[in-house]
Amino acid sequence: MKTFGGLRIAVAVLAIIYILIPLIVVIPASFTSANYPSFPAEGFSLQWYSKILERPEFLEAFLNSAKFAALAALFSVIFGTLGALGIAKYDIPGKSYITALLTSPLSVPQLVLGIALLMYFTPMMLAGTSTGFLIAHIVICIPYVMRLVLTGLSGFDYNLERAAAILGANPLTVFMKVTLPLIGSAAISGGLFAFLTSFDNVTVSLFMVSPEMRTLPIEIFSQMQDAYNPIVASVSSVVIFISVLLIVILEKIQGVGKVFGGSHHTNG
């Protein structure tokens, strides 16, 4: 009955390749010397990378993406860490409901969330503004931060805080010297995750951007809808590179798998 196990492993390997292949082909395709994207690439040149610099809209979109992702990560980490501390440390009545509520933006399709926020923002004059964009991104980042920080807090020994307080430290010192260093790694990985989530988001962003303010995935999306151009491959490779870099850091700090443990996450 060796064949049964062999078949299982063969399909498993095939499935993992299936998951990874769209990312794998993009990078070699970006080095093409032809005027159309293809895999395997024809020839070798870096022309499509230098072309990125000639197209200011990509650079601007990249800077926009990075700026908003950093802000969304900052705010969602502040909100999320405070909230997670409140849930983990104190016996708040109905805390499981509160946790469910705070992670619920994950289980709503992003398309619906985007439409809802757009309709809600329009009378408030927030539609198409950077404030509206930022708010929408914080909403989609908060569940990840909550989940990561709550996981990080599950092994937290509150006696350490108590010991520091008994030894005469004031609450602020306790927080800065004891609590923060211990939950710091969870908060940092929550922040990195939020950054990636915001940086990569297309669906919600589509409803929040304006012609003056576009992010990188939106720029790629509209380029792909118009015409396929090898510049999409080189820009995509840059995105993959940034993502892989952050994933490696995340994996070193806390482990990427933890965030998705049985989660209801919507993407696309």
């Binding site: 769209p22 990569d200 995935p217 999306f221 995509s236 993959i240 993502s243 990427v256 996450h265």
Partner: peptide, 9 residues
Amino acid sequence: SPLLVSIVV
């Protein structure tokens, strides 16, 4: 990991 790379890519 692929989930963390944008869907457009």
